[in-house]
């Protein structure tokens, strides 16, 4: 055994454990299947190995070994493609699809989490070799803390206020507050919608969030998450029973109409507030103005 054996083991174990921690299944129900998890844990193990061996390579002045990290980058980009393709295929069979923006966000998260594992293992092994196992443990705690911070993005509750409104009909037009949702012609269908439907108004807290919730992908993510958590009163062959989110063009509010199987207003509001703010949907039109003013 060389002097690097224990630090390498330590880095790999902490890195793999970090990946398992970041792979926890939550209310979004992904990934739930065992084989999907095995793929990601195995890739996490490889990432941990790559991050760990970088330190002994530098110490031994084997700088060409570091170039393997670039190979790793291309491998993990493939992870993103794999997730994107899988989720796009699965999305066709969802009663309320995730939408491409949400899928892209998940795929990016899977790729970036492997880089966080490399970073964690790198720091742990460095800490172990520079100090001792306690140094490695302190580095592990710091790296896991940073990884946790970086892996959790913003929530919708940070940028909007959510209020419940009972859906209503004006003729065949379905409304949530004063926001027009859709035209439902059949009286029978209207009764179903009023019986099971729930309406919510998302009021943006500032101008930037107005642009973010206007994004169609962000709106689809809200519908998917709520339908996923509360169930959906819908089946194939009932296209009129569809959750929708429409925008008030005057003030940027968004009216969300859902058809949950569990009619719990408080829970629905909680879920809407916990919907992730999708990276690809975030817009900051006011940010540039602020920077210009500061100059």
């Amino acid at each position: 055994m060389s002097e690097y054996t224990y630090p390498i083991f330590f880095g790999v174990i902490v890195g793999t454990a970090t990946r398992i921690y970041m792979l926890r299944t939550d209310y979004r129900q992904y990934p739930t299947y065992l084989h999907g998890k095995i793929i990601h844990v195995a890739l996490g193990f490889i990432a941990a190995g790559l991050g760990t061996v970088a330190i002994p390579s530098i110490l031994e002045e084997e700088f060409t070994a570091i170039t393997f990290l670039t190979l790793a980058a291309s491998q993990f980009r493939d992870v993103r493609n794999m997730e994107r393709n899988t989720l796009n295929e699965l999305d066709n069979y969802e009663l309320v699809p995730r939408g491409k923006t949400y899928i892209e966000g998940i795929a990016i998260a899977f790729e970036s989490r492997n880089y966080l594992v490399i970073f964690t293992s790198f720091l742990c092994t460095l800490g172990y070799l520079l100090f001792n196992i306690w140094g490695g443990l302190i580095a592990a705690v710091i790296a896991i803390f940073i990884s946790t911070k970086l892996m959790s993005g913003g929530r919708l509750g940070d940028i909007v206020e959510v209020e419940y409104f009972e859906p209503r009909f004006d003729g065949p037009g379905l409304y949530v507050d004063n926001i027009y949702i859709m035209n439902i012609g059949l009286a029978e269908r209207q009764k179903e919608v009023l019986r099971y439907g729930m309406g919510f108004i998302l009021k943006p807290k500032n101008f930037d969030s107005r642009a973010t919730i206007a994004n169609l992908g962000q709106r689809q993510a809200i519908l998917h998450d709520v339908s996923n958590a509360l169930g959906v009163y819908r089946d194939s062959g009932t296209p009129a029973l569809v959750p929708l989110a429409k925008r008030d063009l005057d003030d940027g509010r968004v009216g969300v109409f859902i058809l949950p199987q569990e009619n719990d207003i408080e829970k629905a509001i909680k879920i809407i507030k916990k919907v992730p703010t999708l990276e690809n949907a975030i817009r900051m039109p006011k940010e540039r103005e602020k920077k210009l003013e500061e100059r």
Binding site: G171, N183, I184, L186, R189, G237, P239, A240
Partner: peptide, 18 residues
């Protein structure tokens, strides 16, 4: 009209609008 529309909506997988 309502009866035929209900059946057609299910058969054609479309949405009935008034």
């Amino acid at each position: 009209m309502e009866k035929i529309t209900t059946n057609l909506e299910a058969i054609l997988d479309g949405i009935a609008h008034s």
